[in-house]
């Protein structure tokens, strides 16, 4: 059996693949959002002085770092509805289960990224904010967080790309994301090479687009003015950023 470009191209433009790719990206984005929110509070907890804030955050990270994502997904989809009748309803879809499951696991890793980003902001920054009379919340939101985000952006971009790939685990809970779509097609036609090749193209495109978006966002955090006098400097910095990423 030779590689049939027609089968390959047909799949490349098929709605099944596009839908699968969209689902993969959606699961990744949604779980990253969830992971960032949970991870932020876990990071705050872990940097807090109070033991009643530290302990739960430590427990969370310890627990979800140890459990395989696959197991979490199986629990989300199979075990939880047995225990919680409300989850047997239609609204609890594989998509939701996958996003929440991956989000819970990813939060343990995001909390590490956010924690080290918060810690790497110079102490003098919070000190200056407090000296102006800003409340602790204002200091966090207006002074520390914007600087921590800049530090956290590159590793978070990596995590998002990782999540796109991890979304393929959701095949075990019958979510028809990108890889499941390919696998289903293969099971019917046995045209492994063509179907898998189409999947490769999609993953490459997705990750390239995400990397591009990431570098765009990172540039917004360059913190240099774009006046005429600094234009050359800015251009040089941008060239650098592109070179690295």
């Amino acid at each position: 059996m030779l590689f049939d470009p027609n089968v390959f191209l047909q799949q490349l433009v098929s709605t099944d693949y596009m839908l699968g790719a969209a689902l993969s990206v959606a699961v990744a984005v949604l779980s990253l959002v969830l992971a960032t929110v949970i991870g932020f509070f876990m990071a705050i907890g872990r940097t807090a002085r109070q033991p009643y804030l530290q302990a739960p955050a430590h427990f969370y990270v310890w627990f979800f770092r140890a459990i395989p994502a696959l197991l979490v997904l199986l629990i989300m989809w199979n075990a939880l509805p047995q225990l919680i009748p409300a989850l047997r309803a239609d609204w609890f879809s594989p998509f939701l289960a996958a996003s929440v499951g991956l989000g819970l696991v990813e939060a343990a890793f995001m909390s590490e990224i956010i924690r080290s980003a918060l810690l790497s902001v110079d102490d003098g920054q919070a000190l200056a904010g407090r000296a102006l009379g800003m409340s602790p919340t204002k200091v966090m939101v207006k002074v520390v967080l914007p600087q921590a985000i800049r530090i956290a952006l590159p590793p978070t971009g990596n995590e998002l790309i990782g999540l796109v790939k991890y979304s393929s685990l959701a095949s075990v809970i019958s979510l028809r994301e990108l890889l499941t779509t390919a696998q289903v097609g293969v099971n019917i036609t046995f045209r492994y090479a063509e179907y898998y090749a189409a999947a490769i193209v999609y993953y490459l495109v997705i990750v390239s687009v995400l990397s591009f978006l990431q570098s765009r966002v990172e540039k917004r955090f360059a913190w240099t003015s774009r006046t005429k006098t600094t234009k050359n400097l800015t251009a040089a910095m941008e060239a650098n950023t592109v070179g690295i990423s």
Binding site: G124, L127, A128, G133, P136, Q147
Partner: peptide, 22 residues
């Protein structure tokens, strides 16, 4: 919270400026 209110009335300048870089 009360300390924050009172700090408004005292200006502080640091050795290493501590300007907000963003």
């Amino acid at each position: 919270r009360q300390l924050a209110m009172q700090r408004q009335d005292i200006g502080m300048v640091f050795q290493r400026f501590n300007l907000f870089p963003h």
